[in-house]
Simulated scan of single mutants.
Amino acid sequence: MPRPSAPLLSREQIAASALALIDESGTFTLPGLARDLGVSASSIYHHFPGGREAIVEAIRGLLAGENLPLEPGGNDWRAFADRWARAYRASFARHPKVVPLLTAQTVSDPLTLTAYETLAQVLRTAGFRDENLLHAVTILDCLVLGSALDAGAPLDVWAASPDPSSALGTAIRATQADPGDRSQRSFEIGLRIVLTGLGELINRPFDPTSPPGSV
């Protein structure tokens, strides 16, 4: 019998199937993934000796490869960070249920690390001190991942109080009257605020005792 012209199973196929299961139920198991693919669990381990965590990292790489910028492409750190954050959110907002799995383990996917390294290099070139740089990356990361989770939240995140004097209730009703995407709009506002705030760290030490609005 001739050998098949193409592998019956690939790492990309396994990662894509695991992502589909996560989109459906929020998680996956190796036996369930094997059943979904119509193969044995040993076939999956053949491609992923590291098991479940290795598959999660492959999913991270699958999403990072969609549109995360891997080259600086200019000297404006704000423009790059803006592009980086938007691309990152766009990938994960389509799969919000995968975010808790990704944040539960160390990032080791090579493609994703390259994207983070590029961001770090851009920030360092712009004048971010080493003691501030990782915090800047973390802040952008938290904004993106939190917004991606928010993209999968219920349409009504908060129950609006019928009390007309309720500030939150009034704000909820005003936002509901806006035909735009609340989550996307919140991300847009947050990203602008974060980039403005991060600019205060360039070539300066951060003083946690200083009042808001100063460093």
Rank of each mutant, 00 (worst) to 15 (best):
A167W: 10
A87S: 15
G199I: 09
L119N: 04
A41Y: 05
H95E: 14
V157C: 03
G146P: 02
A34R: 08
A171S: 14
K97D: 08
R185P: 00
V137R: 08
P69H: 06
S91W: 02
L33V: 10
D36L: 06
F187V: 09
L133Q: 12
Q184C: 03
E131A: 12
D156L: 08
A160S: 13
G169T: 10
A15P: 04
G61E: 03
S183F: 02
R52G: 09
G50R: 10
P154M: 07
S10G: 12
A160V: 04
D130W: 03
P72T: 11
S10P: 08
R52P: 03
S147W: 01
A64Y: 05
S25G: 14
I202K: 13
E66S: 06
D130P: 01
D156F: 00
F28K: 07
L63P: 00
P2D: 13
A87L: 02
R11C: 08
D181Q: 07
P164D: 13
Q121S: 13
L111Q: 11
I22Y: 05
F28L: 04
S161L: 04
V56N: 08
G51R: 09
T29F: 05
E200G: 13
H135C: 02
L68F: 05
D36T: 13
S40K: 13
S183L: 00
E117H: 12
L134D: 15
A90R: 15
G50A: 11
R129W: 03
R129T: 08
P72W: 04
A93V: 06
A126Y: 03
A104G: 12
D163Q: 06
Y88E: 03
L201Q: 06
